[in-house]
């Protein structure tokens, strides 16, 4: 049986195997770039107030929905494709930033000194609220995200890559670099890092902790909006439940890289994307199809668990002695 299979491969030429591998890498990196951008939001918020913002995925969804609506309004007015997407993205960022601020102000700030799990439950509540508000506004239907930028495929070492994939990777990298610059090179960044290390001490030194935390939420939310537009245009679909699954994966990515650590979120995202793509692509072949792509998520979680067992604070995380 096995010999027969190998024969079939040999007939299909060896380059194809390599082509397929490169294609899987391209798939994985694109997916990973999306995870990374969403993971940044989780990690920033966690880094500064040790809160898993379960509602972060919903911000991605709202971002996609707002952009969906605006593109739908602008395109019939004769606005060309690129400016329309740009305007829509900016508006989505603004809307999400406002929402992120409101979320922090109303749901999380009152809980700053509460036991650790209280804000977590609050976050779950916010996530339920946002999803159902979105249901009211944008209906229950999966919406076809307008494909106004025409998809074009390019050949890359035997694999195909579309202009949208290139766009996603470039924009993600740019946003990560921008964020890294902000956190490590600006006054705001210094204030953020100071607050995350010791909020009390930072306050004594004149840092307005509330303002810094609010800004963190706003930046994270704006990034989520961009991620929403990217996901919407890449897959061509927007739905009011789209945020939760993506949010969960991005959260895993953030933890994998070491939560609270910005380069960690990027590394975790790309790694998770690659693990998923290669897992779906090759587990079947390596296990003689006893396990197939149906175990893709098992594979991803196993990698996550193994990494954490050997490096309990994630790949780039620092050892922290916190309590649950």
């Amino acid at each position: 049986m096995l010999a027969c299979g190998q024969k079939a491969f040999a007939a299909g030429a060896i380059e194809t195997l390599m082509d397929i591998f490169i294609q899987q890498l391209v798939n994985g990196i694109t997916l990973g770039a999306v995870y990374a951008v969403v993971a940044l939001g989780y990690t920033m918020v966690y880094g500064i107030i040790q809160l898993i913002n379960f509602a972060h995925g919903e911000l991605v969804m709202i971002g996609a929905m707002v952009a969906f609506t605006l593109i739908g309004v602008l395109t019939p007015l004769g606005v060309p494709a690129l400016p329309a997407v740009l305007v829509a993205t900016l508006c989505a960022m603004t809307a999400c930033a406002l929402l992120g601020y409101a979320m922090e102000r109303l749901a999380y700030r009152p809980l700053r000194r509460a036991p650790r799990l209280a804000p977590l439950i609050s976050a779950i509540g916010v996530s339920i609220i946002l999803q159902h508000l979105a249901l009211l506004v944008w209906s229950r239907n999966p919406l076809a995200f307008p494909q106004i930028v025409k998809t074009e495929s390019f050949a890359l070492a035997g694999a195909t890559i579309t202009n949208i994939q290139i766009g996603i990777i470039v924009i993600s990298v740019a946003m990560m670099l921008g964020l890294a610059w902000l956190v490590y090179r600006t006054r705001l960044g210094i204030a953020m890092r100071a607050t995350s290390q010791n909020a009390q001490m930072a306050a004594l030194l004149g840092v307005d902790a509330n303002q810094v935390i609010a800004l963190t939420f706003i930046i994270g939310a704006a990034l989520a909006a961009v991620a929403g537009v990217m996901v919407g245009s890449y897959y061509g679909i927007a739905h009011y439940t789209m945020g939760s699954a993506l949010g969960l994966k991005a959260f895993c990515a953030a933890v994998l890289g070491g939560i609270g650590n910005i380069p960690g979120a990027m590394l975790g995202g790309v790694l998770l994307g690659l693990v998923e793509a290669l897992g779906a692509g090759y587990i079947g072949d390596f296990t003689d199809n006893v396990f197939g792509s149906n175990y893709q998520d098992v594979f991803a979680f196993m990698v996550l668990i193994l990494v954490l067992v050997f490096r309990p604070s994630g790949l780039l995380g620092e050892r922290v002695g916190d309590r649950a």
């Binding site: 299909g12 397929i20 798939n27 994985g28 996901v231 897959y235 692509g281 792509s293």
Partner: peptide
């Protein structure tokens, strides 16, 4: 071909499809 699976929330099918493409 051996069955490929996703789930009912999946939007990224590229990995599975790429594998299938290799089998033509």
């Amino acid at each position: 071909l051996p069955r490929e699976k996703g789930d009912d929330k999946r939007s990224d099918w590229k990995a599975v499809l790429t594998k299938i493409k290799g089998r033509n």
